[in-house]
Design a protein around this nucleic acid. Structure first.
Lengths: 233, 233
DNA sequence: TTACTGCTCTTTGTCTACAAAACACATAGG
DNA sequence: CCTATGTGTTTTGTAGACAAAGAGCAGTAA
């Protein structure tokens, strides 16, 4: 009954994809750096075939930019791009909160309260830290999104946007994000969900994310610049 | 100064990707049918390499489903999935309308009115027909989305969701979609955008898409079933 | 000095061949 | 008669070799 060894970690292409994504998101491969196929293939110990597949998938996720016959580079992202993504998040997570109020099970709501309590204990928690660092069920936004029971929504927020935002956080100096206010806002959202008040939940979630965006825009105007990754030639 | 011949149509992988996507969206390859690499490679006259890349990109767009060591199949989509996508559209296009009211140029608003006038002349037009058949600037939703001036939003709606919805329309009997009402709703949206009333534009757009979804759900409950594509073995 | 042209060299795109995993069928056992 | 197991075939995954397009550099002419 033993599972074949290769299936445990998936195909080589899958492994390279995950590793490469991590290296990009965590800044090991700085933004704008060239992704030479031969170089990376030897680096990860695979042939160029699986590596090309990994690059294509990352291209679809907008983590790398590619030009035919020229090659791929780690996506270089402007603060304007980040702000645009927060508009998308506002729309999608707002909808997620609304649907969560409608569709979430009572057990899931209870679990949400527990996450909340846990966060309130670690008062030094930074806004979105959990969302960006823990990949699991322990995060607030993560649980609300899943509570929507909408596969497309989950896919877009967790699968696609998640990694982009994570990369941004390594490119730009991380904004210090109003921990107490965020916690209050989280609690309000959960209470709206528990009350099955979808409209309220959506409105609160949108305000929550809008405020985060406005916070970023403020710092932007204040002249905060991204840490420029030295483009590795 | 002649452009190299291969660059005109892009790489083989690009060509195969476009062709394969068309064949899937238009139903030439029915939902659920197996996408054998060798078979398709010979069919499109290329080797398996470029074909695999095309399949991976379609997988990222959720047009094909794949299992390791098993292969890829054309995505089989339930009506529930379609409804979920309309929730996403409601959120995203609502935001697009709001941003369009803020960012659209006066010229673009004028062009929008012209599209509207054109649609009002062909009274037999069906809701969303333009959105799904014309791929260009002539469509109402298309222009509003672009008016948002938000690259992520445009990418998600035009690049990703667009093709999925298009495929659904071939899988399911096309709903007859209230042409007169839709036109009235379109006009209201344009007027809100012209008045630079973002909140109103968003609210109207969301209602517009919500009604389309409710229309689908009604027909669903009435027992309308998808045309089952015979799964080609 | 500067701009253009041609060459070379590197990198990407593509193809073919081989390895490995899954599926299908047949056969034997309960 | 049904189930389980083993073998053969098919299909996917991976590697390596070849073809072609782009980038950089040198040399030459204005």
């Amino acid at each position: 009954m033993a599972i074949p060894s290769t299936s445990i970690q998936g195909t080589l292409a899958d492994q390279v994809f995950k590793k490469l994504q991590d290296d990009i998101v965590l800044g090991v491969l700085p933004p704008g750096s060239k992704l030479g196929e031969t170089e990376l293939a030897t680096r990860y110990g695979v042939s160029r075939g699986p590596l090309r597949e990994a690059i294509r998938r990352l291209e679809a996720r907008k983590l790398v930019e590619r030009a035919p016959h020229v090659g791929a580079r780690v996506a270089q992202l402007s603060l304007q791009d980040l702000i645009e993504i927060y508009h998308v998040r506002e729309a999608l997570e707002g909808m997620a909160a609304k649907l969560a109020a409608q569709n979430m099970t009572d057990e899931a709501v209870k679990a949400l309260y527990e996450v909340l309590a846990q966060h309130e204990q670690q008062q030094d928690i930074k806004e979105d830290v959990a969302y960006f660092q823990r990949e699991g069920d322990l995060d607030f936004h993560y649980q609300v999104i899943h509570g929507s029971h909408n596969k497309s929504l989950i896919q877009m927020l967790i699968g696609d946007i998640y990694h982009m935002v994570r990369m941004y956080r390594y490119q730009f100096s991380t904004v210090t994000n109003r921990p107490q206010l965020a916690l209050r806002e989280h609690r309000q959202i959960v209470e709206a969900i528990e009350a099955r008040d979808g409209e309220m939940a959506e409105w609160l979630m949108r305000r929550h994310i809008r405020r985060a965006r406005e916070n970023i825009e403020r710092q932007h105007k204040a002249g905060i610049e991204p840490k420029v990754g030295h483009v590795k030639e």
